[in-house]
Simulated assay, not measured.
Amino acid sequence: MEKQEIHSNRWDHFPMRSLKKENLGNQVFEQVKEMIVRGEIPAGKRMIESEIAESMGISRTPVREAVHKLEAEGFLKPLPKGGYVVRGLEISDIEETFEIRSILESFASYLAATRHNDEEILPLEEKIEEFQKYLDRHDLKELTRINTEFHELLYALSRSPRLVKMILNLRDEIYFLRKIILNSIDMAQLSNKNHIEIIKAIKKREAKKVERLVREHVLRGKKFVINEIRKGNVSIDHCYF
């Protein structure tokens, strides 16, 4: 379902961080991208270069550079009569991204099971313990961070920088979706249980089993998110690619 364009273009209520003088275009890109990914700028919000530039206290040139880069990476879409709006996230986007992740992340985990050194497992086990500590206190706001750190440590063991980069690019795009999963106590508990099973299989270097466990782990998250959206428990009005 296409998101309706939001015609209120005031940027006063979108707080912008101060910028350094160097590489302004890239700084604007990173800041606006982060705000879109985190749901701080809504889908359908029109991107007015002059207003963004005024809110940041800079010229329009770096803003224009950032806007073109945001369009190239799929965060913005052009309007028929000119200008851009923030692109909304569709259910088909969610399904496709989870499926791509399941392939990339399961392969990275397969490689990790065959290439890791034994002493590299300890940081992963520490992340599992940290996750459980916050979960026991029902302090869910830290779980997404810890979960992300666990997976980054795991995929780094693949010894495949290009593969890891591809995975992390996708993970940036579904920040909000990870929060949906981990805001459920039951799903958070299941997630950590899955992590324990994955680490046990990695220790035994059971690469095929690790690959299967990770694929099931990712696709289970997809099923949960889609069900929550279709039941109306979660809105995707603040989800973006």
Score class of each variant (00 low, 15 high):
150 F>N: 03
240 Y>K: 14
70 L>Y: 01
199 I>P: 00
189 Q>W: 00
23 N>A: 15
141 K>R: 11
198 I>W: 00
229 I>W: 03
198 I>Y: 01
136 D>V: 09
149 E>A: 14
47 M>F: 08
183 N>G: 07
133 K>A: 13
186 D>K: 06
6 I>V: 15
49 E>D: 12
173 E>M: 15
217 H>D: 05
161 P>L: 05
27 Q>E: 01
213 L>Y: 07
202 I>N: 00
65 E>Y: 06
225 V>S: 04
208 K>R: 12
227 N>Y: 02
147 N>P: 00
27 Q>F: 05
116 H>T: 05
41 I>P: 05
85 V>F: 04
5 E>S: 10
208 K>H: 06
95 E>G: 11
160 S>M: 05
134 Y>W: 13
67 V>A: 07
72 A>Y: 02
129 E>R: 11
147 N>V: 04
145 R>D: 01
15 P>H: 11
48 I>R: 12
133 K>L: 13
94 I>E: 01
125 E>W: 08
51 E>M: 15
175 Y>F: 14
22 E>W: 10
226 I>Y: 04
208 K>S: 15
126 E>D: 12
75 F>D: 06
17 R>V: 08
114 T>H: 04
150 F>L: 03
35 M>R: 14
189 Q>C: 08
58 I>R: 02
101 R>K: 14
102 S>P: 03
42 P>N: 10
8 S>F: 06
4 Q>T: 14
183 N>K: 11
153 L>C: 09
184 S>R: 07
96 E>S: 14
188 A>S: 13
191 S>N: 10
75 F>V: 13
67 V>Y: 00
24 L>R: 13
145 R>C: 02
90 E>M: 08
132 Q>H: 12
31 Q>W: 06
232 G>V: 04
157 L>N: 02
25 G>S: 12
13 H>F: 14
185 I>L: 14
179 K>T: 09
223 K>A: 10
8 S>G: 11
72 A>W: 01
